[in-house]
Amino acid sequence: MNEQTPEKKKSLWNCITASREVSLLLVLIVLCALIGIRSPEFLTISNIGEILKNNAVIMIMALGMLCVLLTGGIDISITSTLAFAGMTVGMLFKYKLIQSTGLGFLIAAAIGAMCGAIIGAAIAYGGVASIIAAMGGMYIFRGLAYLVANSQWAGADALGSFTNFALSSNLGFGVINNVIVITILCYVIFFIVLKWTKFGRSIYAIGSNRTAAAISGIHVARVEFLVYVIMGLLAGFCGALSVTIYSSAQPNMVLGKEMDVIAACVIGGVSMSGGSGTVGGALLGALILSVIAKALPLVGIDAIAQNTVKGVIILAVVILNVVTKRMMDRSNLERRKL
C-alpha cells in the first residue's frame, strides 16, 4: 500500500506534464484565480465576453500566424494588411460607396488575401526569406493605409450601420455576440483543417522537414503560398472586424500588435522553427495575453509600470513553458527506463 502512493502522485504529475496544453491551461486558471481574488468582478460573464470581444482580432490572427509559423516562416506584415483593409472599408463606408455589412467584410478579406498573395508569391515562388518579404510588406501596406486614409478617419457616424455588427448577436441566436461567434467559428474550422485534412497535415509536414515533404509529393511552394494567402485573408477580415468593434478606422490601427500575435502563438507552445504547435495552444496563448491586458488595469497596478509587468509576465510564461517541457522530456525518459 505504501508503495502505491508515490506512484499515484506520479501519475497525476504525469498527467500535468504529459501535454503542454494542460500545463498552459493550468497557468491560465491560476492567473484567472489570482486576478479573481484581487477583483471579484473579473470572473463575471459580461467581463469574459468583453475580454473575448476586445481581443477577437488578435485571437483570429493567431490562427493564421500558427499556420505561418508551422511552415517555419514568419509574417510581420499582418497588422499593416489589417490597417490597409480596414481603412479601405472604412473609407468606402464614409463616402457611402458601399452600405452592406457583408460586402464590407468581403472586400476587406479580398484586399487582405491579395496582400497575402503578394508576400506569399515572393516567399514561395521568389525564394525571398519570409521575414524580408513580410518586412517589405509591412512598410508597403502601412504606407498604402495612410494613402487610402488621406488624413481622414472614419468615425462611428461615418460608418453607420456597419458598427451594428459588433453589437448584435443574431449569429449567436441572440445569446452570444457576433464577434465571439465568428472567433469560435474560425477556431473550429482551423481545428478541423489542421487536424483532419490533407492540407493541414502538409503544413505540418513542410515545417518538420521540407525536403521530405517535397519528396513525398507535397507541392511545397503551393502550400506555402496558400498559407500566406490565408494569413492575409484573416488579417484583412480582422481589419473590417476591428473597424466594427471600435467603430473607428484610423491608418495607424493596431500598430506593432503583430508582435502580440506572434507572442500569443509562442506562449501557446508553437515552435518558431516550424512543424510543431496546435490550435489549442494558440488559443490558450492568445487567452493568456488577453487576460493579462484586461487584468493589469483592474488589479490596480500603477499605470506607469503596466508595460514592465506585462513584459515580465510574458517572459515568465515563456520560460515556464520551457521548464515544463524539459521536465516532460525527463519524465518521459524515466518512464521509458522503467
Binding site: 473579473f42 467581463n47 491586458a293 484586461k294 488595469p297 483592474l298 499605470a303
Partner: peptide, 21 residues
C-alpha cells in the same frame, strides 16, 4: 487617472476597467 495610450483597444480595456472598479 487611467491611461489608454491613444490606442482604441487599450482605451476600451481601461474604460471597462473603470466601470467595473
Amino acid at each position: 487617472v487611467a491611461y489608454g495610450d491613444d490606442e482604441p483597444q487599450k482605451s476600451t480595456d481601461q474604460t471597462q476597467a473603470l466601470l467595473s472598479k
